[in-house]
């Protein structure tokens, strides 16, 4: 006997719960379908340290960039979750003494990373990233490949979104989704940071309906960026 479901107390509780449901003694559920199964998440990385230089981003974006040639994402049918778990956590950079960040007790990057972490937990996502229009990661949670590479990839997808406006006349296109292997996908959501665009990129299982969670989080992210 090892699993909780094998204990008599569990069977008894299930029996009573079924009785209560039959007697309409349970509040009506907001959802018609069952619950989504939880997945194990890697320990959250503490926070995102100051980002890479513009030169690194430019190098990653260059046509002959080694990152792109090496195809940093694992091949088809290879879930990247293991790769995510294997990545070491970043250490938090302490706020300089006397700075506003120290007074507030938290960096903007930390707040964004926390928002990403919460979003991934709620939505069952494997990872997420926010980048500005230069491809500079503003916050990362569980990136499967180096931030520079995925930041660059976000810009590639962002450019494709912009093309949808120009070529298809769909100027309101804000989302792009790409299956990266047999089980996972990357979804990019464009949002405005003042006059320039920003991008939220999430990595999640293909069966997950990520839209609601992404839309909710965009609002929170925009507020954090606005306050900064």
């Amino acid at each position: 006997m090892g699993k909780i479901t094998e204990f008599s107390e569990f069977a008894e509780a299930v029996k009573i719960a079924n009785e209560l449901v039959a007697q309409s003694a349970v509040a009506i559920s907001a959802r018609k379908m069952g619950h989504r199964a939880l997945t194990v998440h890697a320990k959250p990385s503490a926070s995102f340290a100051p980002g890479p230089s513009q030169e690194k981003i430019a190098a990653a974006l260059a046509p002959n960039a080694s990152l792109l040639k090496e195809d940093p994402l694992p091949g088809p049918a290879t879930p990247i979750h293991d790769a995510v778990l294997a990545r070491p956590s970043r250490l938090a950079t302490p706020a300089p003494k006397g700075s506003q960040a120290a007074k507030d007790g938290i960096y903007r990057g930390d707040k964004l990373a926390n928002a990403l972490y919460a979003m991934c937990q709620r939505g069952g996502f494997s990872g997420a990233l926010i980048v500005d229009d230069n491809g500079l990661p503003l916050a990362v949670h569980q990136s499967p490949v180096p931030e520079e590479a995925i930041g660059a990839f976000a810009i590639v997808l962002g450019t494709a979104l912009a093309k949808a406006g120009k070529l298809l006349g769909q100027h309101n296109a804000e989302n792009i989704s790409i299956d990266i292997n047999y089980t996972e996908k990357i979804v990019l959501r464009r949002f405005m940071l003042g006059q320039s665009p920003g991008y939220l990129l999430v990595i999640c299982p293909q069966e997950v309906d990520e839209r609601g969670e992404v839309e909710l989080s965009i609002e929170q992210i925009a507020q954090i960026l606005k306050r900064a």
Partner: peptide, 23 residues
């Protein structure tokens, strides 16, 4: 704790056993 495989497995087991609307 979503990082604990034991807890995640226990929650999923419990949810599977009970009628979904009770959670």
């Amino acid at each position: 704790d979503h990082t604990s495989p034991y807890e995640v497995s226990l929650i999923n087991d419990v949810r599977e056993g009970f009628p979904p609307q009770v959670f």
